Simulated scan of single mutants.
Amino acid sequence: MHPSFRTPVWFYFGLAFGIAWIAWLFPVLASHGVLTLSPAAQLACLFAGSFGPFVGAFVAVYRDGGWPAVREFAGRALRYRMGFVHFLAAMLLVPVAGGLSMWWLASHGGPPFAALVTASHLPLLYVELFLIGGSVNEEFGWAYAIDRLQQRHRLLHAAAWLGVIWGCWHIPLFFITGLTQSFMPFWAFVIFTVALRVVIVWGYASNRQSILVALLFHTASNMTFNLYSMVDRTSRHDERGFIGAALIILVVAAVLALTAHCYRRPSDAVVSIETGAKS
């Protein structure tokens, strides 16, 4: 059955964007010489803003169904039972796509193919990125968002729209000097966010709305940017490595859009938050 959402969807997106964009405004202004921020203050603003989707989701869930709904929603991050294929995709899809793209780039005038992180450092890096690198900060929010968007759209359309929204949520970061996004072409970033969101929603919807699946996908994605020189920070601005990885993921997303059961079933079969349900 469909739950009763008491919170207007604009309220959630207003919080998710408002918290992020207000916090990120200060580093944007500092990057353009309007004010001065210490490195610690800039990091604090970036970190605080990244929790916009998280805060927005839990405020909205509480408004929808009180503490029982909050417990059910938070409990989805503990749904560790998932399909083996979904688990492999969550852990390896983006790293493999990034590796293939950087290997291709190395043979077409790019830097030599090499990993930037040793195997011994990967576990710690993964844990850091999982907890404070954006995964927890964002994926609870995007889980709530997909539940709301599929009220009016088929799941595939909702996932694609959320990918666009996800990309646009990052817009201020493109104007902060030195951040990864400031070196990327925005159009390629949106291709990446749409394609990856279609894949993440596939894993999420195929495993009883497991937020843990989404967390694993997001963490592996962020780890890939630490594992390879995916973004060219030099004056050459050769972003073929990132664009290539985005296109590989787009191909995977297209295959899933055509074949995945969750994207082919009728829209009234999709499930959302069930207030008070057990995980």
Rank of each mutant, 00 (worst) to 15 (best):
L131Q: 05
R154A: 13
F130I: 12
N137I: 01
G141R: 07
F130M: 15
A143C: 13
Y144I: 02
E138F: 14
A145K: 03
W142A: 00
I132F: 15
F140T: 08
A143V: 09
L156Q: 06
A158W: 02
E139F: 04
L149P: 08
S135W: 10
H157I: 09
A143H: 02
R148S: 02
H157G: 05
F130Q: 11
L149K: 02
A158D: 04
A145C: 15
F130W: 15
I146R: 00
H153Q: 04
W142I: 00
V136N: 03
L155M: 10
H157W: 06
G141P: 10
L155Q: 09
F130R: 12
L131F: 12
F130S: 09
R152W: 11
I132E: 02
N137H: 14
L156K: 06
Y126R: 05
E138A: 08
L149C: 06
G133K: 12
R148V: 00
H153V: 00
D147C: 03
I132N: 06
Y144V: 01
R148D: 00
N137E: 13
R154L: 01
G141S: 06
E128W: 11
Y144H: 03
R152E: 04
E128P: 03
R154H: 15
Y144Q: 02
Y126H: 08
E138V: 08
G133L: 13
D147K: 00
S135A: 15
Q150H: 12
R152G: 11
W142Y: 11
L156T: 07
L156M: 07
E138R: 12
A145Q: 06
Q150E: 08
L155D: 08
H153W: 09
L129I: 15
Y144S: 00
L131H: 05
V136A: 05
V127W: 14
Y126G: 07
V127I: 15
E138W: 13
Q151I: 03
R154V: 07
E139H: 05
A158H: 05
A143P: 11
H157N: 05
N137Y: 04
G134Q: 10
E139G: 03
H157F: 03
A158Y: 02
L131C: 11
L156Y: 08
L129V: 15
A158R: 04
F140W: 11
D147Q: 09
G133T: 15
E139D: 07
E138P: 09
G134H: 10
I146N: 01
R154T: 14
I132W: 10
L156C: 07
L155P: 12
L129H: 13
G141F: 09
Y144F: 11
R154Y: 02
S135C: 09
R148M: 02
E139K: 06
R148F: 00
F140G: 05
V127G: 06
L156N: 05
E128Q: 14
L131S: 05
E128M: 13
F140R: 06
D147F: 02
I146F: 04
F130D: 08
E138S: 12
L156A: 12
Y126C: 09
H153A: 03
A158N: 07
V136M: 07
A158K: 03
Q151H: 14
G134S: 10
A158V: 12
Y144M: 01
G141T: 12
